[in-house]
Design a protein around this nucleic acid. Structure first.
Length: 197
DNA sequence: CCCTGATTCGC
DNA sequence: GCGAATCAGG
């Protein structure tokens, strides 16, 4: 496979959307994630900047590695074109309600993935909640059948409502949820201020 | 062990 | 230019 125009475009698009190199590689087919990353670099769009790229802490690096070769300073990449993608913006408002419990889940989860108890009226880390509502905008919004071992199975919305979906973002390794949802799902029951130390 | 991106360097 | 191997991290 070679980097045709279309493939490069898709690469750019997906990379811009925050997809991981491996996901992009999988989508493109015929290439490895290394190839994707390599291409990304060559295209000069290594960082996913767009405006929210904090140029913090880039002054010096504690480089203490024995480099037995001549080192070439990487050329600074010019400002890439921020392709404006007028994609979907159907949900300007995010409901801040707690995830509703699943209906008859025990019978319909294909992979037999247990869905841990939903934090109902629990007191969850506000930061974690904020993170969740933020990532829910980026959620894949998968249906039940679309869930895999690698997609976040966090339910969003009311199951009795047409707009009920599953997060679908890449899961945290091992866990059934993405990072953000793991944050609220596996909140160690420590509402108490008892920290063993 | 799963994953991520970053870099190097032979091709 | 390409990407496998490797590196460095989560």
């Amino acid at each position: 496979m070679s980097w045709t125009d279309e493939r490069v475009e898709l690469l750019k698009k997906m990379w811009g959307e925050g997809q991981s190199a491996s996901q992009i590689a999988k989508e493109l087919g015929g290439v490895t994630r290394n190839a994707v990353i390599g291409k990304v670099h060559r295209l000069g769009l290594s960082n996913r900047a767009g405006g929210a790229a904090p140029a913090a802490a880039a002054a010096d690096k504690p480089e203490a590695k024995p480099k037995p070769e001549t080192k070439v300073k990487p050329a600074p990449k010019p400002a890439p074109k921020p392709e404006v993608e007028p994609e979907d913006q159907p949900e300007p408002v995010v409901e801040v309600r707690a995830p509703a419990p699943l209906p008859a889940r025990k019978a319909i989860i294909p992979a037999g993935q247990p869905l841990p108890p939903q934090p109902s009226a629990n007191e969850i880390d506000p930061a974690a909640l904020a993170k969740v509502s933020e990532i829910e905008k980026k959620a894949k919004k998968l249906t039940l059948m679309e869930l895999t071992e690698k997609t976040c199975k966090w339910p969003v919305g009311d199951p009795a409502t047409p707009d009920f979906w599953f997060c679908g973002l890449p899961v945290q390794q091992g866990k059934p949820y993405c990072e953000a949802h793991v944050g609220v799902a596996f909140q160690p029951m420590s509402s108490r201020r008892d920290r063993r130390r």
